[in-house]
């Protein structure tokens, strides 16, 4: 492992109309860390996620992943490169079952279906299908999803839907996992279970970049915290340092 960060965002700027969403934002995510991104609503956290995952093209600045410039790549190319994400508003595919949703996440890592598999598939001998199913089941297990895997996701609780979405992202075997408010709508017990899952994901050698409002979870979980406010980075560092930073306290945490 080199000293270079896994993800290196340099001087990124995004404006929507006249509104400055991100202004000269730079951020380095170290490999195999849990890096949290916090800040008040409208600070630009989700915009930064969209930039990193390619859904929004930055007007200025550059993105590097494993020391490779990737600014301007399409979202599907970025996923293949090794960055996967979930969505703040859960975006599972309604007509697909839970397991099929996660199987979509495997697509980029699956071999092509051979002619033999195509013909023998109805007899249960489609190797690609079996591979995808096994991997998807494994991912659902990893996120501790215990519900019905063959039902449509809309029948599941929001908490389970979030788990399914994390499993779908993990199925693509990402080196960097972007989690946008995964604990939103969770009770404290569920949130601490999620913290354990995130630690487990890091334990598998992956890196997690996390947007979260649950500050208790963030400060107990993260190795590194970056604070965004009004499109600018106002602090970055280990949780203990950020927690006591006066600018952060004023803009976001408040005096406790």
């Amino acid at each position: 492992m080199s000293d270079a960060p896994l993800l290196d965002v340099t001087g990124v700027g995004v404006t929507y109309g006249g509104y400055v969403a991100l202004d000269d934002v730079s951020c380095r995510v170290v490999e195999n860390s849990i890096h949290a991104l916090i800040g008040p609503n409208g600070a630009g956290k989700t915009t930064l996620f969209n930039v990193v995952s390619g859904l929004v093209k930055p007007e200025s600045g550059s993105l590097q992943f494993r020391e490779r410039q990737y600014t301007g790549l399409r979202p599907d190319q970025i996923l293949v490169m090794g960055i996967a994400r979930n969505f703040q508003q859960v975006r599972l595919f309604p007509v697909l079952s839970v397991i099929e949703n996660v199987m979509v996440g495997c697509h980029s890592r699956l071999p092509r279906t051979s002619f033999r598999d195509f013909v023998l598939g109805p007899l249960g001998r489609d190797k690609v299908d079996r591979l995808a199913r096994e991997r998807a089941a494994e991912m659902l297990d990893l996120v501790e999803y215990r519900g019905d895997t063959k039902a449509p996701p809309s029948q599941m609780t929001l908490v389970d839907q979030r788990r399914i979405e994390i499993a779908r992202a993990l199925a693509s075997d990402p080196q960097l996992l972007l989690l946008d408010e995964p604990a939103a709508g969770m009770n404290p017990a569920e949130a601490s279970q999620l913290s354990e899952i995130i630690r487990k994901i890091r334990g598998l050698g992956r890196t997690v970049l996390l947007v979260e409002h649950n500050t208790r979870m963030v400060f107990s979980l993260a190795d590194e915290v970056t604070v965004l406010s009004a499109g600018k980075i106002i602090a970055s560092g280990p949780p203990s340092a950020v927690k006591s930073d006066s600018a952060v306290v004023t803009a976001y945490l408040g005096n406790v």
Binding site: R74, P75, D76, F93, G121, V128, D129, A132, R168
Partner: peptide
């Protein structure tokens, strides 16, 4: 039940999420 079929349905359901999933 093929990857292509699932991809087609995923594109129909949510283009952004489909693209983000590769």
């Amino acid at each position: 039940t093929l990857t292509l079929g699932r991809a087609i349905l995923a594109v129909h359901e949510d283009e952004t999420a489909a693209e983000a999933m590769g």
